[in-house]
């Protein structure tokens, strides 16, 4: 398990992407799923920093925990901001995406991209901390018996 602590500011986004990318490469994750994972982590980290900390006048760390076992690369972001479950937010539906770009509301795309890009996404609130976990499969699924 690799743990790296970043200050909860937008300046940390680049460093967070770098540690996730390094571990994804070590885990042998292919280029496209690696990009999807980086994007998912970036979107949620942005939400933690801007909504969780900044808009509530708070500050704190974003811890990045990465592990690779049993064909699964797992990235967890932990923070001390107010409880925020991304899955409880209204996701843009088909109607949203069917609207021409000139009319559609700005925003609402980050969580969609997150859920769409990773194999599994989990949210928990444990010991007064938000835990957002992203899981990518790193080995081809075995053929059905």
């Amino acid at each position: 398990m690799e743990r790296t602590t970043f200050p909860g500011t937008l300046d940390s986004l680049e460093g967070i992407r770098l540690v996730v990318k390094e571990q994804a490469q070590q885990a042998g994750l292919a280029k496209k799923p690696t990009y999807a994972l980086l994007l998912a982590v970036d979107e949620i980290a942005t939400n933690i920093i801007t909504h969780g900390y900044d808009e509530n006048g708070g500050s704190g760390p974003v811890d990045v925990l990465i592990s690779h076992a049993d064909g699964k690369l797992s990235v967890t972001l932990e923070d001390d901001a107010v409880a925020f479950d991304p899955l409880k937010h209204t996701l843009p539906d088909e109607q949203f995406f069917a609207q021409p770009l000139e009319n559609r509301p700005i925003g609402g795309m980050g969580i969609h991209l997150t859920l769409n890009g990773v194999d599994e996404f989990k949210y928990e609130y444990v010991n007064h901390r938000n835990r957002n976990t992203f899981i990518m499969k790193t080995e081809p699924a075995s053929a059905p018996a």
């Binding site: 990009y35 980086l38 994007l39 979107e43 770009l101 000139e102 925003g107 795309m109 980050g110």
Partner: peptide, 16 residues
């Protein structure tokens, strides 16, 4: 090499 939803929003504003 990387464009998040924040970048998509800029493309959207420019497009409009």
């Amino acid at each position: 090499d990387f464009l998040s939803s924040a970048g998509l929003r800029v493309l959207l504003v420019a497009y409009r």
